[in-house]
Nucleic acid binder design. Structure first.
Lengths: 151, 151
DNA sequence: GTTGAAATTCATCGTGG
DNA sequence: CCACGATGAATTTCAAC
């Protein structure tokens, strides 16, 4: 699972991380090697699992999702982990879920249309999951940074 | 800043969110309209700021980043907000930063190579920022969900 | 908003150094 | 690992409906 990444791979990734639709030939010109070589390296990186697909980034606001919140989740008992994970996965408003050290068992990131919607998910969905004892909500009033790892 | 998105736009976005490199012509065939129409609609969505670029997703682990952590940041005084933001932006390990309600002033997401690296950022970088009084760290032992909004 | 066709550019294979 | 060359496909533009 450990794959060697050289400088050229890094350079390729640094372009693709910023713009998934950049033509391979443009990267090739920047790197001074042929398009076929870029093609092969990208394929290698994909096969190795280093690249995990690509995505267009859509602003949640534009789709009517005005509220972003993090929710810390407490469990009654640790052994309810699996069932709770299953229930959480079924909640579409949750776009990230981490199993964390510290006070919470889970820390999840949610996108909701408005505060009413957020409350609905908290009260009617999350708190109804067997095993979840309580939650702690942090509403993101402003997302100041959102970027990829620096290569 | 409010733009109308119809069903076709939604369908286009639903494809591009999952795979930024899918050919527009393939989307065109699925939607039953011409490739040129897809091209123009995507351009419209980009110009309207609904689409905020595209990215290849790279697994942090593959690049040697083994540790993902969320850190809650407390400030001495609220008016130090601006300076602290500036300092936080300069920390490359921080890939997200939210201004949040609740106990913390900021909640940031960090990627570090290992626990040693994490500790270094916490002690030598974050705690050295004037205005930051203390921090609370949640290490993500497992990221269970990572997805885009459901369209 | 949409189409269809044209010109350009690209992705993706070989084969071979 | 890489370059080259060929071909089929995709992108992009534009006139026109």
């Amino acid at each position: 699972m450990k794959v060697q990444i050289d400088d050229v791979d890094q350079k390729i990734l640094s372009y693709l991380i910023k713009n998934a639709r950049i033509p391979f030939l443009e990267i090739a010109r920047e790197c001074g090697i042929s398009g076929a070589a870029i093609h092969q390296r990208v394929k290698k990186l994909e096969d190795a699992g280093i690249i995990d697909g690509s995505r267009f980034i859509v602003k949640p606001r534009a789709l009517g999702y005005e509220v972003c919140a993090y929710v810390g989740i407490f469990l009654d008992h640790a052994h309810q982990y699996k069932q709770v994970v299953g229930r959480i996965e079924a909640i579409p408003e949750i776009i990230e879920c981490h199993f964390t050290t510290g006070n919470f068992t889970f820390l999840v990131k949610m996108l909701c249309r408005d505060n009413q919607h957020l409350m609905d998910v908290l009260i009617n969905t999350l708190q109804n999951v067997p095993g979840i004892s309580k939650t702690e909500t942090f509403i993101s009033l402003d997302q100041i940074i959102d970027r990829e790892i620096r290569l």
